[in-house]
Simulated scan of single mutants.
Amino acid sequence: MIYLDSAATSLQKPPAVARACSYAISHYASPGRGGHKPAMDAAAAAFACREAAARLFQVPKPEQVVFTNNATHGLNIAIKALVRPGGTVVISGYEHNAVTRPLHAIPDVTVRVAAGQLFRPEETVEAFRKALTPEVTAAVFTHVSNVFGMILPIQELARLCRERGVPFILDASQSAGCLPVHLEELGAAFIAMPGHKGLYGPQGTGLLLCGQTPPPLLEGGTGSESIRQEMPDFLPDRLEAGTHNIAGVAGLLEGLRFVEKQGVQSIGSHERALTVQMGEALAQLPGVEVFRSKDPSQQAGVLSFRVSGMDCEELGEALGRRDIALRSGLHCAPLAHRTAGTLETGTVRASVSAFNVPQEIPRFVRELRQILSEKP
């Protein structure tokens, strides 16, 4: 199988990830829930994971790294901390439902979409400049579009938010592990990311990097200050009610170590090279429309395309039967499709990871060409 769906979940992982998960299941208890060796070893692994994330993402203190179930969990915490009923929030035109649905659920919130055309970052900056008026209480923007791989100009957007005094949330779901993501440099209130994509950890893991201490989304046991009925007022305990997914955390630690060893820049360059190779090859096929940037530095390892006269879902299934694994449809991001003009059709999305190799691209293209030749 050629796996081209890492924007959903990276399938190929460093072998150390599975070993760490297996070891944790057999040897670790719950961190913070006992002074015996299994609990203490679990606590050490959890803290080592926070330390690794703090190094990679320039977080001042490991305690500011909070474990979540996924990026959606972290985004819900962050959004509900900053956005109050009746407030006004600015988002980009490329946000995932993990951003738009929590905002929709808050009563009487005004959501301003600061949209620019696909692969025109200067338009996004200008749209944010106009939208960030005094009544805006928060901003949320993705780093990389999960549909098109477009890299948003987050440095400029962060600067605008700082200048206007607007706290902002960064969704790093498609950038963590392949692009620099630095909490302190950006001045973000929160950065949310999954563990199971570019960090090569298991599903059911995620990180929320906290530039401030928000109210908890959940209440419950933390192993600390148990006499109190209020949640602790310090991180990470304030946001980590209940038993940790310590096997997942142990696996995520090995994923972070892999990314740190390989280097974020190296992984990103590798993925962009594959995306350029794939885009050039797909563009040669008749009837194929490829959504790609003329400037490779503006696109990460995600590439969408569609074929004239073919349903995207049917095409994705046909490729799947030929052992080409990718994703078709709206990719949980109808706003991005509305902005790009692809809402009615959706797209077929191919996305790569550090484990894909150039030799896989020609076979993928050959299989697609064969499907197109059989089209009635």
Rank of each mutant, 00 (worst) to 15 (best):
I246D: 04
E240P: 01
G177W: 03
T345W: 05
P202C: 10
D171A: 04
A192P: 02
Q359R: 14
G211S: 05
T222P: 01
Q203R: 11
L208G: 01
V288P: 03
C312P: 05
G187F: 11
G149I: 07
Q203S: 12
R272T: 07
D233W: 12
L11C: 13
S373H: 11
L179V: 10
N70T: 05
Q359N: 13
Y3D: 11
F305H: 04
P215M: 06
R33S: 04
E289P: 06
A241F: 05
V357L: 13
H270T: 13
P214D: 00
Y94A: 13
V259M: 03
A24P: 06
A81N: 01
H73E: 00
Q203Y: 07
D295S: 15
M310N: 04
I151A: 11
L75K: 00
N97G: 02
S328M: 00
A81Y: 02
A192R: 04
T72S: 06
Y200D: 02
P38R: 08
F190E: 02
G206Q: 00
P121N: 13
K61V: 15
S30W: 00
L152D: 07
C21R: 10
E225M: 12
L199S: 05
D237C: 14
A52I: 10
F141N: 07
I106C: 03
H104F: 02
P216V: 04
H27Q: 15
Q12F: 12
V166L: 08
P296E: 05
S226W: 14
L315Y: 06
R84W: 03
K37V: 15
P362Y: 04
L285D: 02
I324R: 03
Q229F: 09
P62W: 12
T347F: 10
V302R: 04
R120Y: 13
G34Q: 10
G329E: 06
S226E: 15
R120V: 13
L343V: 07
L157S: 09
R369N: 05
G204V: 01
L218A: 09
I2G: 08
P358L: 09
A18T: 12
V125H: 12
V259G: 06
G320L: 15
L217A: 06
S266V: 15
